[in-house]
């Protein structure tokens, strides 16, 4: 089995590590880089708990091998906050709206919401539900998540303080 030395730009920092070919991107992030914010829910691409941004697009990190991410940019939940630790408007909106309970699907939801807001700052509720349609949540029934994304969009647009 081939072993690879890879460098992935994670949350703006070049991070290197060793990965055997079969190591998935999510396992690389969690076990090699110690970024345990991204979670594993199914390992077959259904639940979305492992969602990360790769090269500006949300993808399932359990469906990629780490070697495939060599030379690419990845953003995880840890990269959503500012360098000084200030939460992004989306993260703050999740907190304000209690858009979570157990927190396990939350990183994936934030990634999906973040991706949506990166190209659509006025999403309808339908568009929000679509954007998170590939992320399963067992706690919330989704509604407070939709409200949080809506509120974050308003905040970013500058419509509320």
């Amino acid at each position: 089995m081939s072993e690879h030395k890879i460098t992935v730009c994670v949350n703006g920092n070049d991070m290197s590590g060793h990965a055997e070919a079969r190591l998935t991107l999510v396992d690389f992030l969690r076990d090699v880089l110690g970024l345990t914010g991204t979670h594993i829910g199914c390992e077959h691409g259904v639940c979305g708990a492992c969602s990360v941004i790769m090269d500006d697009k949300p993808v399932r990190s359990c469906l990629m091998y780490a070697v495939q991410a060599d030379g690419h940019d990845v953003t995880t939940v840890e990269g959503l906050e500012a360098d000084d630790g200030t939460m992004s408007p989306l993260q703050d909106a999740f907190w304000e709206n209690h858009a979570l309970q157990c927190g396990y699907c939350t990183p994936g939801m934030l990634i999906a919401g973040h991706a949506l807001l990166s190209y659509n700052l006025s999403p309808t509720d339908e568009e929000i539900r679509h954007a998170i349609g590939g992320n399963l949540c067992r706690c919330t029934g989704y509604q407070q998540i939709v409200e949080a994304v809506r509120m974050a969009a308003e905040k970013i647009r500058g419509e509320t303080s």
Binding site: D31, T36, V77, M87, W95, H98, L100, G103
Partner: peptide, 21 residues
């Protein structure tokens, strides 16, 4: 009132059993 636990979860700082290594 904001749920205080939510803070760690929205920043990816939850400590789940699989995070113990």
């Amino acid at each position: 009132r904001r749920v205080k636990e939510d803070k760690r979860f929205v920043t990816g700082r939850g400590k789940f059993a699989a995070d113990i290594n």
